[in-house]
Nucleic acid binder design. Structure first.
Length: 820
DNA sequence: ATGCCTCGAGTTCA
DNA sequence: CTCGAGGCAT
């Protein structure tokens, strides 16, 4: 049976998308360009022949396409800066105060302008002629979009008037007016084209079109708001006069630009624009204030990549109303049951929101969100959608308060709440497929074992099929198994796959699909020739993509076998043990064999590990299943820890038996009492043998002595104490670790990274800072030594400024790293 | 006990 | 990114 056009179209779309994604996200070529083009052409032909199959999200309509979508790079001689943000009146007043103090001036004049929601660009004029236009890019380097900018009617090709500098760069915002955006989408809907999400995306997408004719059809506009490089000429001494001059030279400048005085003037302007916002012809997301006189600007200078003389005052996150269609719960890696609201999709602050976390049952109870409710949603911090409140008047009749289900929707185990905790958990542990999948995904994740290419979709299938039950099974996977898996997944189902293949194989070759495909693997020349003779490149491409994936995944799994103790400890997914704790454990103990059998009180020897984390570690390693899983990883999986070393000598400081007793958290046992106890009963064996009277004789109050006796009898505590004592002696007997690291120049300093770095990845920067002894943390506080801010730095930069923490830009970091 | 400072864990969308 | 909560200094 030959595949229906619909099935065929589905397969094509999936292949095109896989290849396109690999190319865009990883710069990886899954299939040659010619093959890719063939796939796209076939899909186009199919969609034309069967218009009912054409879909708005089809890759044939994708903006930009695939290969060659690279624009030339343009280096900005004067960097295109980002702006600091203000969200409250106070922050604006602080901004004005800082300037007043530094410039020692009472009256400050600002140029205030609307902040358009578009795309920042730079236009270069030489001898009055438009020669080049570029996007902002990372601020230092952008993309050359000259051809597309020439299509924008309001951008002058030649400067008007006179007196312009020999070289003039004009900075401004390309945007799409609301009316033009609506018209575009109406047209797109009519012709079944791709509907764009918002004017901003429309502008950005249009500008990055490769074909200028395409972007010409979309009506873009432009407002100038500043200048970049200027050579062979002078600009007026104030920003406002410069804008007027730009207008005279032929540039559109918003007529909402105004000069105002002091913070009062700024705030009045903000309110005025806020009121007029909805009536404007274009979207704005705030207003921008710039110190008007250039001399003052120069005196103020820059922090990181942002000028100190300008700030963006943002409007509050946009809110929208929508309805709650369902409240589902998701089971996380630790079993945490998180309620998520499925919403009727709605556009909030530029994106379509269809899910919003409700965080936990308390939050639902507080808001009293019910299925069917109309709610207000907001994008908190402009990213993660949240439900703000319920509109009570619009609640349908007959609803009941939402309740946490009593059983896990995935495995059916009971959902329980720990005492005093906020979170409900599925009690199924690793017998719950949801938890097992998440645990495996965590194990494979980049910061853990780093098995690239093993996404959630494949883990789902592997676990559902029973091929992978635990993490060690990953190391048993065979290439052909994976190949089959991928082929079936790509086709949607084994049946779909078989029917598709049947059509393209010669009659004598049809039959078992998988066998057919597998035999194409270069081993059988006859098959190979037949495949090449097939009418469509389909089988080849399917095969090539799948083979590539399987080979890559096998290679990634193989590469993950050599790992560090830190990564493996993190990968195990022990509760409360994240990257940082795993790193500390690895550094202090150095040896998995030791860690696996360590009684929990001894984990507290490591700074930043307290009772909770230590118990969690102990609990994990007590479980037989976990020990077996680790054994399997090592023996069957051939996982090797490459950095095993001796425990740190520092572990021995203050480590006597009395301390072990204290750290075991026995009720009533203080350091003083423990010492008395040890003086009378010097080791664990003696202690265990002793009658409670001996404890009293050693100076313990009656109730504490009885409590201790009771404690020793319960829950294997006695045995644990014996083990702890044995381990303690072992640690003491170990030769001191010679390889104590030399103190780096940043030893003991905490550094925070924020924003996007252009020259290196954040992981890279982190590793290099750590190599110098720094601790790289995620949150800014007074103790932070300095904050490294890349482009688009967010709240952490703001916080650093508030706390007066030093801010480095990327160049400074690079210079520092180079010097050390 | 109280109040930082961090870390861990969970999540959204392009 | 944000929230909750663990660890530790006061």
């Amino acid at each position: 049976m030959s595949p229906s056009p619909a099935e065929r179209a589905d397969v094509l779309r999936r292949q095109i998308e896989d290849a396109g994604k690999a190319y865009h996200e990883r710069d990886e070529l899954l299939i040659p360009d010619a093959d890719y083009d063939a796939l796209v052409r076939e899909l186009e032909a199919l969609e034309q022949a069967h218009p009912e199959l054409a879909r708005a999200d089809s890759p044939t309509r994708r903006v930009g396409g695939k290969a060659s979508s690279r624009f030339a790079e343009v280096r900005h001689v004067v960097p295109m800066l980002s702006l600091g943000n203000a969200f409250s009146d106070e922050e604006v007043q602080d901004f004005v105060r800082r300037i007043g103090e530094r410039l020692r001036r009472d009256a400050l004049y600002f140029s205030a302008e609307p902040k358009l929601d578009g795309l920042a660009i730079s236009l270069r004029y030489e001898d009055g002629q438009f020669v080049q236009g570029a996007t902002r890019g990372d601020g230092a380097t952008g993309e050359d979009v000259t051809a597309n900018l020439r299509q924008i009617r309001v951008i002058p090709h030649r400067l008007q008037g006179e007196g312009w500098p020999d070289v003039l760069e004009v900075r401004g915002e390309v945007y799409m007016a609301r009316a033009d955006f609506e018209a575009y989408n109406a047209d797109a809907r009519l012709h079944d084209g791709k509907v764009l999400a918002n004017p901003r995306n429309a502008a950005a997408g249009s500008l990055r079109q490769l074909d200028p004719k395409v972007s010409a059809r979309r009506k873009l506009s432009f407002f100038a708001y500043g200048t970049g490089e200027v050579r062979g000429g002078e600009l007026p001494a104030t920003h406002s006069a410069t804008l007027a001059q730009l207008r005279a030279w032929g540039f559109p400048v918003s007529d909402l630009c105004q000069v105002v005085e002091g913070s009062e003037g700024l705030l009045a302007y903000y309110r005025d624009i806020g009121e007029r916002r909805d009536g404007l012809a274009f979207d704005i997301d705030g207003v921008v204030y710039k110190l008007d006189d250039r001399a003052g600007q120069e005196q103020m200078g820059f922090v990181s990549r942002a000028p100190r003389w300008a700030i963006a005052h943002k409007f509050p996150a946009q809110e929208q109303t929508t309805t709650v269609e369902a409240i589902e719960i998701q089971i996380g890696r630790t079993g945490a049951a998180t309620p998520v609201a499925r919403l009727d999709p709605v556009a909030v602050a530029g994106v379509i929101v269809s899910n919003a976390t409700l965080h936990n049952a308390d939050q639902i109870a507080r808001l009293d969100v019910r299925v069917g409710d109309t709610v207000i949603v907001r994008r908190a911090g402009d990213v993660i959608p949240e439900v703000v409140s319920v509109i009570a008047e619009r609640r349908p009749a007959g609803t009941a308060p939402w309740q946490m289900p009593t059983h896990c929707p995935v495995c059916g185990a009971e959902i329980v709440r720990e005492e005093g905790a906020a979170a409900w958990r599925c009690s199924g542990e690793l017998s719950c497929p949801a938890q097992r999948k998440e645990a495996i995904a965590h194990f494979a994740s980049r910061r853990a074992m780093d098995i690239d290419g093993l996404g959630g979709k494949y883990i789902d299938t592997l676990v559902d099929a029973g091929i992978v039950r635990g993490v060690a099974d990953l190391y048993r996977l065979q290439r052909d198994q994976l190949l089959q898996l991928k082929l079936v997944l790509d086709a949607g189902s084994p049946e779909a796959l078989a029917s598709q293949i049947g059509a393209h194989l010669p009659p004598e070759a049809s039959g078992d699909y998988l066998r057919a495909i597998l035999q194409l693997d270069g081993r059988d020349e006859t098959w190979r020739a037949q495949a090449l003779a097939m009418p469509a490149a389909f089988v080849w491409n399917t095969k090539k993509i799948a083979t590539r994936w399987a080979d890559n995944l096998i290679a990634a799994i193989d590469a993950s076998r050599d790992t560090t103790l830190e990564r493996l400890l993190f990968a195990l997914g022990i509760e409360h043990v994240g990257e940082s704790t795993a790193k500390a454990l690895a550094a202090w103990f150095g040896d998995l064999a030791l860690i696996r059998r360590l009684p929990w009180p001894l984990f507290k020897r490591v700074p930043d590990i307290g009772g909770e984390v230590a118990r969690s570690l102990g609990h994990f390693f007590e479980q037989d299943g976990n020990q077996k899983a680790i054994d399997a990883l090592i023996t069957i999986g051939k996982v090797r820890i490459t950095d095993t070393h001796r425990p740190s000598a520092k572990l021995r400081d203050g480590l006597d038996f009395a301390q072990v007793l204290v750290e075991a958290e026995i009720p009533g046992i203080t350091r003083l009492r423990a010492e008395k106890l040890v003086a009378a009963l010097p080791d664990a064996a003696t202690l265990l043998d002793a009658e409670p009277v001996r404890f009293v004789a050693a100076g313990l109050p009656n109730d504490v002595a009885l409590g201790l006796a009771d404690w020793l009898d319960r829950d294997g505590h006695g045995h644990m104490l014996l083990k702890a004592e044995a381990c303690r002696q072992e640690l003491l007997a170990l030769a001191p670790d010679q390889a104590e690291q030399i103190a780096g120049p940043l030893e003991g300093q905490t550094v925070v990274l924020t924003g996007t770095l252009a020259q290196m990845t954040r992981d890279d920067a982190k590793a290099r800072l750590e190599a110098l002894g720094a601790k790289v943390s995620g949150s800014v506080s007074r103790k932070t030594a300095f904050v490294v801010a890349g482009t688009e730095a967010g709240s952490k930069l703001t916080k650093a400024q508030e706390l007066g923490v030093e801010v480095w830009d990327e160049d400074r970091l690079l210079a520092y790293l180079a010097a050390h």
